[in-house]
């Protein structure tokens, strides 16, 4: 999954998904295609989002692929920054909290293996810390 998320360390900015932006069409893409689909112009690599809310989700309980934990959660997240709807994994430790509309933020950690069987970093969304504890962010 090269180039689809910012790499650690995350000292200054939280992890973000990396996509493409067409300044002519004012259009965002994730993942970044080779050309802008509307004008076929070049795309600029850009951060498309670190936060969002859940549009839909499911918990897969069978045959987890690629060393993912079983069960594991996936879904679509509406990114706050760009409005893109993107497919993503969810934090395996918070599956019981998932619901449509839940505010989430991006994390990047070792999760599962790549197609060669080596442990790899994956981006996933995790519930935002609850509002009653703002100091925690």
């Amino acid at each position: 999954m090269p180039g689809i998320f910012t790499l650690p360390p995350y000292d200054d900015e939280p992890p973000a998904l990396l996509g493409g932006f067409c300044p002519v069409c004012n259009a965002y893409y994730f993942p970044r295609p080779k050309y802008c689909r509307a004008c076929l112009g070049p795309l600029k690599e850009t951060r498309v989002g670190s936060e969002g809310s859940i549009y839909s989700f499911t918990i897969v309980r069978k045959k987890a692929p690629l060393g993912l934990p079983q069960p594991y959660g996936v879904g679509y997240v509406i990114l706050k920054e760009t409005g893109l709807f993107i497919f993503s994994l969810f934090d395996p430790a918070t599956l019981d909290k998932l619901r449509i509309g839940l505010p989430v933020r991006l994390a990047v950690n070792t999760l599962g293996v790549d197609i060669n069987g080596s442990p790899c970093l994956r981006p996933y969304f995790t519930p935002m810390p609850v509002m009653s504890d703002p100091g925690k962010i």
Binding site: S56, F57, K63, G75, S88
Partner: peptide, 15 residues
């Protein structure tokens, strides 16, 4: 690579 398989897609649709 992010864990999408056919039942997951339709689980999300159903939800």
């Amino acid at each position: 690579l992010l864990g999408l398989a056919a039942p997951a897609t339709f689980g999300m649709r159903a939800r």
